[in-house]
């Protein structure tokens, strides 16, 4: 399975949830498979997906899923320590770990070499860390969103990309419709 297939496979369990999605191809794939006002697409700022997701989860009550990548987590490594020390039980962090920087041409990341993101998350103090394969992602994400316990899921999959459309929705529109969805759930 490649990331695009993992993303497609989890749509049934995330379509009605608040989702913050990583910059580049991950957001474009989510946009292509299931564009929803409850999706916050990151159009800039590599690395901040998990931080935006945590900030959102800590400030309202609905479940939040942040769909991040291995490269993005490596860019903002301190985030795992912040998440561990400020647990939000409505927060699920899904790290789709394909061992590469997908959006820039699949250059390998250290997560595909010697570095285990699930072990790092545990070492940072995250209490509930799951490592799974792409095929298990939908089940694990579904459980986590209902579990009312902060969960970090590291989903291992293959590198590779598919053609995707650009997101032409205006950023203020993405933000505004997303905030309307947040309000409706609180």
């Amino acid at each position: 399975m490649i990331r695009s297939e993992v993303t497609k496979s989890i749509i049934p369990v995330i379509t009605d949830e608040l989702v913050v999605c990583n910059i580049g191809l991950p957001s474009q794939e989510l946009f292509m498979h299931d564009d929803q006002p409850s999706n916050f697409y990151m159009l800039g700022t590599m690395g901040l997906c998990s931080s935006i997701g945590l900030g959102l989860a800590l400030n309202q009550n609905a479940p939040v899923l942040a769909i991040d990548g291995d490269g993005s987590i490596l860019t903002n490594f301190g985030t795992l320590a912040t998440i561990a020390n400020n647990p939000a039980d409505n927060f699920t962090l899904l790290i789709i770990d394909n061992g590469s920087y997908g959006s820039t041409g699949d250059q390998p990341t250290y997560a595909g070499k010697k570095t285990s993101l699930s072990k790092v998350a545990k070492a940072c103090g995250c209490a509930n860390v799951i490592e799974c394969q792409g095929e298990e992602a939908a089940e694990e994400v579904g459980k986590a969103l209902k579990g009312n316990q902060m969960t970090i899921i590291v989903c291992k999959c293959e590198s590779g990309n598919v053609p995707v459309p650009n997101i032409l929705t205006h950023p203020v529109s993405i933000r505004d419709r997303f905030m309307t969805e947040v309000e409706a759930r609180n």
Partner: peptide, 16 residues
């Protein structure tokens, strides 16, 4: 890190 902090603040704002 301050960039991380700006991500947290963006999320808080989205959360109202």
């Amino acid at each position: 890190h301050e960039a991380e902090g700006m991500g947290l603040c963006a999320g808080a704002f989205l959360g109202g």
